[in-house]
Design a protein around this nucleic acid. Sequence first.
DNA 1: AATGCGGGGAT
DNA 2: ATCCCAGCATT
Length: 338
Amino acid sequence: MNQIKQFQSLLLNWYDEYGRKDLPWQVEDSYLVWISEIMLQQTQVSKVIDYFNAFIAKFPSMKALAQAEVHDVLSLWSGLGYYNRARNIHKTAQICTQKYKAQLPIDLKQLMALPGIGKTTAGAILSLASNLPFAILDGNVKRVMSRVYKVNDRKVSQYSKKLWLLAEQNMSQQRPKNYNQGLMDLGSQVCVRSKPLCNECPLTVLCQAYQTNETELYPPKQTKIKQIAVTLTTLLSVQDNKILLRQRKNTGIWAGLWFLPELNNKNELIKAKKQHGDELFSLRHVLSHRILTINVIKPAHEIALTDTDKWVAIKQLSKYAHPSALVKILDAYQKGLI
DNA sequence: AATGCGGGGAT
DNA sequence: ATCCCAGCATT
């Protein structure tokens, strides 16, 4: 038996016994697979499950999603992060409704042309929903392939190119869906980042990193991004169980989301500091690329409102797309810390 | 080829 | 505190 056949056979047998088969998006429905794949981009399975269920309850079909207001789509994304995913999902639903009779196309190139769908997500949709032999290269597959074949090129493009080729070469033509799902499950349950459970792995006979006892050297560490410190100064106004929110501009952090009004103007800022002295509540909030210090001021009297400001009942907050930092601030307020 | 984009779980 | 997660789009 050649190596590729052996790889497939070992993986698929392991999948049959230990793989996941009960996730809510493991269905032959490309719409549901698609929604899940978008949510799962850089986001862990455990975090996605509740968001996914709420999303499909509200938007059970492509048409329902296409007809929605984009802000209603965004509001279901509150706290999930990478909010452009929600905008893209909405755009794609509208495109598919227009061009493809409210179905996702069953074609790699056509899928990849849609907003928010890259090669991995397209491959996942085709393989998981339609059992077609298209590979994927998510973090799990990368880790498994990097170890089995000892791929650790410093050059990211070269590294990625090699891993794609391996994922494609090893693809099972008979069981594409189970092959991809098996690789992901193996990566998330056995071939984990630190202290992989090699004694439970079906691929040790093929795994080059295991053979030389170097699993900890693979995959190579990602070059870490520098986190830039940023300070936001915001106003917290609460009256009659309502909170004053302002919609953020369409670029940068939390683009288009609702948050506390922010003081950008230097004069406003100086005035506010004079007025409140050191009595600012300060909160730290970390993003992948920024370390935010959020100063929160409770203004003593009325502030100038812009036309996008809105008093929102705290109970209605879920209707307004907002970052998790807002929830954090509100929690602190309700505990009396602010 | 590099950077922007959220939030949180695991260690 | 560090690493990275079912990545993609833009620069």
